[in-house]
């Protein structure tokens, strides 16, 4: 009986396994193999020489990786600070208004990211909504607000806000009211309640939100290209260039592998510290 069950399980898992193997694992494998090929080849029929990895180190591509990670880290930190009060409100204060807010935030996702960013481009550029109005009213213009690192960060924070906000609200909702009240009753100040009760108990939400925004931001490209105007080159931009203009697939693959390895390591380190079951609502 048990053996049949086990076989049935295996059979049921087969279609999904096949899709995952064909659609996720195989391309990754292709990329991984390509990353070991000599420069500028378009097939696997060469001895792997790992030259792309040397190129990454020698030609300063690691700088793009650092930029991407730095931007992702800063955007995540900013999002944490920005979203905490908002998520706190959604989880505990707003009541029915929470639904309205949720719908509004989710609705913004219906519009393509590039189009939304282009909207901000028109708003922030020289002669755009802001600078144009100021010039018209005060006769004094300035160089627009685009093409710098703060503009990229603004884009990242704007685009990835929902991915921080909702997990965070979920995390804050997991903090029992009584635990908060009891800490207060036992003499804790508001700050002590925040650091010793709310932060640790909302940690799964904080972790999930941070990982989502970090991973997405690290792989982001449109913000840096559009709002940043290539003020800095991010790794995703390098990868795209390698695959397109440069026609150097092995280099693009190697850059991808490095990004996957770095981000994957950080995510695994983070996930080891979170109880995903808890945030999915299972009570211990």
């Amino acid at each position: 009986m048990e053996r049949i069950d086990r076989r049935l399980g295996l059979l049921f898992a087969l279609p999904v396994s096949a899709i995952l193997a064909g659609a996720f694992l195989a391309p990754l494998l292709v990329v991984a193999i390509f990353s070991t090929m000599p420069q500028k080849v378009f097939d696997f029929l060469h001895w792997p020489d790992f030259s792309s990895y040397r190129v990454i180190l020698e030609q300063g591509y690691w700088r793009s990786i650092l930029w991407s990670l730095g931007l992702a880290f800063t955007a995540t930190a900013l999002l944490l600070v920005i979203c905490w009060p908002l998520a706190y409100g959604m989880a505990r204060v707003f009541g029915r208004f929470t639904l309205v807010l949720t719908v509004l935030v989710v609705m913004s996702l219906f519009v393509s990211e590039n189009i939304r960013l282009f909207g901000w481009f028109l708003t922030l550029m020289k002669g755009g909504l802001i600078e144009g109005h100021l010039r018209a009213w005060f006769g004094q213009g300035f160089e627009g607000l685009l093409f710098n690192v703060p503009a990229i960060l603004f884009g990242l924070v704007y685009v990835y806000l929902p991915f921080m906000l909702f997990p965070l609200a979920q995390g804050i909702a997991m903090v029992p009211d009584d635990a908060r009240a009891a800490a207060f009753d036992l003499g804790a100040s508001r700050w002590q309640v925040f650091t010793q009760i709310e932060l640790p108990l909302a940690a799964p939400g904080i972790m999930v939100g941070s990982l989502l925004t970090f991973v997405l931001s690290a792989g982001a490209i449109a913000e840096a290209k559009l709002l940043g105007g290539r003020a800095v080159i991010v790794i995703a931009d390098d990868i795209e260039t390698a695959f397109t203009f440069a026609q150097n697939w092995p280099l693009g693959s190697a850059l991808s592998m490095v990004l996957i390895a770095v981000v994957g390591t950080l995510v695994i380190l983070g996930l080891r510290r979170v109880d995903l079951d808890a945030i999915m609502g299972r009570r211990r």
Binding site: P176, D178, A179, A181, A182, A183, F184, D185, L186, G187, A188, S189, I197, P200, L201, A203, R284
Partner: peptide, 19 residues
């Protein structure tokens, strides 16, 4: 306020800190 009163309470839920 509660955190400045020299009294405290055992809650119905006990309100122990799970972490």
């Amino acid at each position: 306020p509660a955190n400045r009163r020299p009294t405290c309470m055992v809650f119905q839920s006990l309100a122990l800190f799970p972490h």
